[in-house]
Design a protein around this nucleic acid. Structure first.
Length: 476
RNA sequence: GGCGCGUUGGCGGAGCAGUUACGCAGCGGUCUGCAAAACCGCGUAGACGGGUGCAACUCCCGUACGUGCCUCCA
């Protein structure tokens, strides 16, 4: 499989450290407020990545952290802790806020979006001891220095600091704003922050340096190492994390282990809303619940996301979601044909049928091939459209049921859609009405026929008449 | 201010130096008891100005606009 590696700025062939096994780490959400649709974007792409790797036979071991402490309002390690700030705003403790939004995030990820749950889903606060231990190793090796508000990593000790982002550290130094934090270099970052002397934090722990809490980047370095080992195969995250968070993870991890932290760095671009960045000040932040409230399905949202490549910038509007919902509806109606076909083929068209079946089965390979090329979901969706459109102008007798089922199952398996469950068979009652309608049509009783069609439509099913009989589909 | 990126038809979104992307929506027609579907056709895409090519949406330069990071962010 080829993937674009941010570290080298090239598409490269994935070569896992251990044959047939892929260790994957994904930065998780900071659970201080309601997640929005942009938060979920990356996780939808990484879900497909995991699905493809598994379909290719890899044993994927995946870790995702939950940031429930230490993420400050500003990435330069000043400002408040987001958790503590959120807690004050809601009149709860930081622990309660973490619980509340962790629960919401899990519900949205695994119930609403149907993402595959990581093997290790780890809150940062579960690994405080390990983080202190890790920071101790950094301290012992001389990477840390103390200032008033915490222990900081001296980035000037590394020759290759900022290699992921290709940071111009000297330029940053020269162009730095007046820095009141007392850091030696603008890129230095907190590994351990002290509790403010006058304030009792909800979340704080004793450490060799003083009571406080871990720096934001520490958790990912530690949790990745503890669950997956010193070097992982793929580290994913949003592009916003390249210059600071991931850069600092690399600095810490490689300083401790002396080994590469991750062989592949894979980053997803962002999605805008109405062509603008999502921001609270613009009031254009949408949540999954907003999408549901507008009457759209989660699969339509996923289709919208997958219809652009993970590395290109996207846009969200209700019109675009509408188009995705329509496309999904078309796919559902193709999938529903499986209830109306059989594996027994008409003898006179046996050869034709075989050809049709073969081309449907070949589709799975085509899908995998597209996804294999840097997770090209755009081409993947196009291949699905092409495969389904082969069913357009042929009679039901010519469609091989089990190969259609396999195609639909492959789509669900690889893209994480739920076409199978979204396309139930119609009730026996409707089936009887359809048969009855076909009978009165033979008698040219058009009035009765139209009455039956309306009756069927009341149950959300439309019927259309073709040369090979009536075909039902879901009404819009 | 520093460093990037983008600009494709009504909307979304690809590839490609010389053939229809594709999806969603729209219009005309054929077919049909009607409807739907399907099929056929249509709308003359490539921000603007130069340049290099026999040939550029596709390469190079500039302009305009938009946008990202540098400061919270997926």
């Amino acid at each position: 499989m080829k993937i674009y590696n941010t570290m080298t700025r090239k598409k490269e062939e994935l070569m896992p450290l251990e044959a047939n096994k892929v260790r994957l780490y994904t930065c998780g959400l900071t659970v201080y407020s309601q997640p929005h649709i942009g938060n979920w974007l990356g996780y939808i792409y990484w879900d497909v990545l995991v699905r493809v790797l598994r379909a290719k036979g890899y044993d994927v071991e995946r870790t995702q952290n939950i940031t429930d402490v230490g993420h400050l309002v500003s990435d330069d390690d000043s400002g408040e802790d987001k958790m503590e700030k959120g807690a004050r705003a809601e009149g709860m403790t930081a622990w309660d806020v973490a619980k509340k939004y962790s629960d919401i995030a899990e519900h949205e990820a695994y119930d609403l979006l149907g993402l595959i749950r990581p093997d290790h889903l780890v809150p940062a606060t579960d690994y405080i001891d390990k983080q202190i231990q890790f920071a101790g190793e950094l301290d012992k090796k001389g990477y840390l220095y103390r200032i008033d508000d915490g222990m900081y990593f001296d980035t000037s000790k590394l020759d290759d600091y900022g290699k992921l982002a290709r940071l111009d550290t000297e330029g940053l130094q020269a162009g730095a704003r007046v820095d009141m934090t007392g850091k030696k270099h603008p890129t230095d970052f907190a590994v351990w922050k002290f509790s403010p002397p006058s304030q009792k934090r909800d979340m704080e722990w004793d450490s060799p340096w003083g009571t406080g809490f871990p720096g934001w980047h520490l958790e990912c370095s530690v949790i990745a190492r503890e669950t997956l080992g010193d070097t992982i195969d793929i580290h994913t995250g949003g592009i916003d994390h390249i210059p600071v968070h991931h850069t600092n993870e690399i600095a810490q991890s490689e300083s401790v282990t002396g080994k590469p932290f991750a062989n592949f760095w894979v980053h997803n671009n962002h999605i805008k809303v109405d062509g603008q960045k999502m921001a609270k000040s613009l009031g254009n932040i949408y949540t999954l619940q907003d999408i549901i409230d507008h009457g759209y399905s989660m699969d339509a949202f996923k289709l919208l996301v997958l219809s652009k490549h993970y590395r290109t910038e996207g846009n969200f509007t209700w019109d675009i979601l509408d188009a995705a919902e329509n496309r999904l509806m078309n796919w559902r109606n193709y999938a529903a044909l499986r209830h109306q076909t059989h594996d027994t083929l008409r003898n006179d068209d046996e050869k034709d049928n075989d050809d049709k079946s073969i081309s449907l089965l070949a589709t799975r390979h085509a899908l995998l091939e597209a996804l294999n090329d840097d997770l090209d979901t755009v081409t993947t969706l196009m291949i699905i459209d092409e495969a389904f459109s082969k069913l357009d102008n042929i009679s039901l007798d010519h469609i091989h049921q089990s190969s259609l089922v396999e195609l639909v199952e492959s789509i669900d398996e690889l893209l994480g859609l739920e076409l199978i469950t979204l396309t139930p068979d119609v009730s026996d009652d409707i089936k009887r009405l359809i048969i009855e309608r076909e009978r009165v049509r033979d008698e040219k009783d058009w009035q009765r026929s139209d009455e039956l069609r309306d009756k069927i439509l009341e149950q959300g099913i439309t019927v259309r008449d073709t040369q090979s009989g009536s075909i039902w589909s879901y009404a819009k």
